[in-house]
Design a protein around this nucleic acid. Sequence first.
DNA 1: CAAAATGATTAACACCGTTAAGTTAGTTGA
DNA 2: TCAACTAACTTAACGGTGTTAATCATTTTG
Lengths: 203, 203
Amino acid sequence: MSRDPDSGLQRIILDTARQLLTTVGYAQLSMRKIANKIGYSATSIYLYYGNKDELVHALIDEGVDLLYEELKAANEKSKDPLERLRDMCVAYIRFGLDRPEYYEIMYVLHPEYITRYPAEKYRKARRNLEMMASAITDGVIGGKFESTDPVLSANMAWAQLHGGVTLLSSERVDKRFSEDTLIRASCSQIIRSLLVNPKSVEV
Amino acid sequence: MSRDPDSGLQRIILDTARQLLTTVGYAQLSMRKIANKIGYSATSIYLYYGNKDELVHALIDEGVDLLYEELKAANEKSKDPLERLRDMCVAYIRFGLDRPEYYEIMYVLHPEYITRYPAEKYRKARRNLEMMASAITDGVIGGKFESTDPVLSANMAWAQLHGGVTLLSSERVDKRFSEDTLIRASCSQIIRSLLVNPKSVEV
DNA sequence: CAAAATGATTAACACCGTTAAGTTAGTTGA
DNA sequence: TCAACTAACTTAACGGTGTTAATCATTTTG
């Protein structure tokens, strides 16, 4: 399984899987559908991916990179830790709402699934959280933020963001509030919880 | 479908479905397994539940009631809005972690699923959030809390709690932090975001 | 040239939700 | 009493799923 990454068919499989994922969603993504679409038999996929897990893990990988790029761009837009954090929060939620299929396989799918996710890839996924943690740390150093444990704070921020994304995109949240209202509220909630002087709520 | 709720077999089906849900989890819950366990054919279930959705919705219903009882108990333990809210937050997270299968079908499962969830049941599910909102409102009236929109604040709190539950129970969260640490941090995060005077962080 | 490796296939297994048709037993009404 | 009807349940089947084993060409290598 998983031989030369560029051996033609493997790339085609991954491309088709990605396309199906983003069009019909994970629930409708099947080995047979991928195979049909490219004119191969379903079992051919198993020559390049040991099982469906491996294939989805490859897609998760892409999602992690995609999110990383978004977060990095947000993080580099400004020098101010507060703005960096705020922009990253917005970028995170936007990613979750704009690419729900990626978000689903990355962060929503069954725990069983993620258990089998290789440890090395785990580390890459953690970069994203670390980037937020370092913005918080910078804010603390700069005296604008207050946090006894920036990593814990980053995890709390993540929980807030993740909860927001999932409740929003599953339409479980109160429809009286617009998407924009909820995004703003989430971000200012996170920022305010870190500010030394929360009176300045110009988020 | 869904005739007399107490027509014997219907109850047995629901009981067995619940038992399978809590033992093997939703992913392993199938019509055929339920049927096998009670010695009937799978199609017999369709005499009492139109499809798997209906059956799962009945289970979701139970979960909603279960959570409601927990939240109500927490809400009635004290008169102080802050304590009420704090206890409800803890109760919510505990429910999510102690009954992950219920929590999954209630709040994690595919959006498609919840779309088909009947509107009347939706209302019942909303009671839970309203109870938190009213504790916040009481806190605002009492002058301890600050919130321009208690319902929005309740939704933010919910997002934080939901994010915490899902990240924790899917073990996506940093393992350096104990479950207890994360629960405490989530709750104090929520409370602090509402306090007029956040200096008193004795949560 | 024969042997081995490569890349793909077909057939099959064991599941899944669901539908249609059939069976069996019990009740009702003329 | 006996035919008609109804309720409760079953079997068979459809189309779908992930996955494995066996097979068949084709190409590469010794």
